[in-house]
Amino acid sequence: MPYDLGVFDRRADYKSETQCKRTSFAFYQAVRDLLPVWALEDMRTMEVFHWEEGRACSFTPPEAFLYALVHDHQQYAKFLLNRYSVGALEMPSQSFCCCQASATPHLTVAVRYNRITILEMIMDSLKDFSDSERQSYLNTRGCFHMQGGKDALHLACELVRPECLIMLLGHGACPYVTDRDGNTPLDCLLNQIRQGEPDMRSKHVCLGYLILFMPKFNFQMKGQLQKNPALWQSLIGEQAFQWLLELSPPSLFVQAMQKMTRSIPVKQLDSLPDFLKPLDFRLHQYAR
């Protein structure tokens, strides 16, 4: 093996916390260095341990998948999902995620690190879920200590991740779910827009995606838009301002796009003509 894991003395209590920390870090390094899948699986199943509740434990597929996410090891992530299916997305041990009652952290970690390719793999793995199971998985809040208790959609808006946002919305994430403070994803995004630069273009793209997946605009910050119309019209444009306050209906083009984006798979958006792609529509509508 490329890392010296030491020789365990099976006559002694070799599964000590110190030795587990050593082998755990070796596995972390191996995934970080993008070692081949076979080498990582050999390490995970035979040679490395982490310390959990006073005993040595092997890394489970969900724990290995978290490492693959953090380090963008796409081949390892693909292997784990193909081999263990949604079992690779189950809750890891408490040493990896202390909020055991919350959703598994893989979605929010994928959004935080902007792992678009692996996020798409996760979405594909949910195809066998029922609609209710998929909704639950996509919309449940994440770990409070790691992700502030936010679900993946709120996090995508807060961190301004357009590719993550459209993928989540296109696979059924609900744009009306609120966080612990009662904010919708739209509220989180408007707060980001109010802060101005940097990357206003990406913020406007995210706003366009939310508009395409929100038939009704119910959000906490509606009162702030009403109180400061000049400010918000300068930030999001006259048309978006009118639509969000429901002072005028979206154009027929936007309504048609709303119907289309909710009825075709996200992957097929790339095959649309340029003038019909939501991204191009967004830049045309909100470019300043």
Rank of each mutant, 00 (worst) to 15 (best):
M1P: 08
P2Q: 09
D4A: 13
F8A: 13
R11G: 02
Y14W: 15
Y14G: 08
T23E: 11
A30I: 03
V31Y: 01
R32E: 10
L35F: 11
L40T: 06
M46Y: 08
E52Y: 14
S58A: 14
P61N: 07
P61G: 09
A64G: 06
Y67C: 13
L69P: 03
V70M: 05
H73A: 13
L89N: 00
S95N: 11
Q100Y: 03
A101Y: 12
P105W: 03
L107N: 10
T108S: 13
T108Y: 01
A110I: 05
V111W: 03
R115D: 00
I118M: 03
L119R: 02
L119V: 00
M121G: 04
I122M: 10
K127G: 05
D128F: 00
F129C: 10
D131C: 01
S132F: 07
S132H: 12
S136D: 08
T140S: 12
T140C: 07
G142N: 09
M146W: 06
M146I: 02
G148F: 11
G148D: 06
C157N: 11
P162T: 02
P162H: 04
L165Y: 06
L165H: 05
M167V: 09
G182E: 03
L186I: 07
C188I: 01
L190A: 07
Q192T: 07
G196H: 05
G196W: 07
G196A: 10
D199A: 13
V205N: 01
G208T: 01
L210K: 04
M221Q: 12
G223K: 13
I236Y: 05
A240Y: 11
W243R: 04
P250M: 07
Q255R: 10
M257C: 14
Q258T: 07
I264R: 01
S271K: 13
R288L: 08
